[in-house]
Amino acid sequence: MSQAATLSIASPPRAARRSNLGDMIFAGACYAAGALVLLLLGGIIVELFLGGLPAFRAFGLPFLWSTEWDPVTEVFGAGVSIYGTIVTAVLAILFAVPVAFGVAFFLTELAPPWMRRPVGTAVELLAAVPSIIYGMWGFFLIAPLMAQHVQPALIDSLGELPGIGVLFQGPPFGTGILTAALILAIMILPFIAATMRDVFEQVPPVFKESAYGLGCTTWEVMKGVVLPYTRISVAGGIMLGLGRALGETMAVTFVIGNANRISTTLFGPGNTIASVVALEFGESETDSLKLSALLALGFILFVLSFIVLAASRYLLRSRLKA
């Protein structure tokens, strides 16, 4: 099938010379554009690494876990923001995955056909809303809601429990790690839900029909046939959501509280790599150690997202081939 694309055709010599030139130029442009994409990725890695090099040199490997961030004495560490990035992203996954699964289950198995497209589109539109809008919405609507209702309720109900109680203590500011994770969860929900829906739809109908023929309920078909059949792609979709959550900037900057400390409670303020870079960048001078530290943070974020996104693509490769 694909040989057609590489067929070479013997044409009359005069026309051939002209068309060969056209072909060479066009093919050259296409190859150059392809190479440009590789250059872009290489350029991003190299520029971020070179920019962060002074900070890596000054602080060495402990930069990764040091929790200091003091612009006055010029001591910088990435510990708090790496912690905040990972905690908010993982919490967001914990919140988003069950909901996304529910949405995908509804869209593929339960919803009447006329409902699938509008509801599916509506969920996908959530992915189109710009990050900054989520930030404003989270800051002006969700954060007050958290402060007045959700967090006091959580403190009363879960705060007393031994062990996990410590996660739900402290003053209910509204902003903080938990709120940031919640907003992130809403933002990555459509990506995970859309991937799950697409892979659920690829399960051969005959498998499902056999299970129904044995007397399975819809839920048993989902649990026993669809999920096992698609589990690798589902994991890929979750990794895609994780990759997105790691690098979200504007929404998180609005609601995370922006403090350079690691709190035991989920209500405490924190920061993420992206929010630190976005906030502190304007206050750092050219060639300062602080700017270098921010670029080093960018490099670390890039490595993190690259690993997660590459894993996601690897897991989703069967879907991509189909």
Binding site: V37, L40, L41, G43, I44, E47, L48, G51, L240, G243, R244, L246, G247, E248, T249, A274, V277, A278, L294, L295, G298, L301, F302, S305, F306, L309, A310, S312, R313
Partner: peptide, 13 residues
């Protein structure tokens, strides 16, 4: 990868 990479890093680049 570039499709899902954090856009803030494109800005830094």
């Amino acid at each position: 990868i570039l499709l899902s990479a954090p856009s803030i890093l494109i800005g830094l680049f």
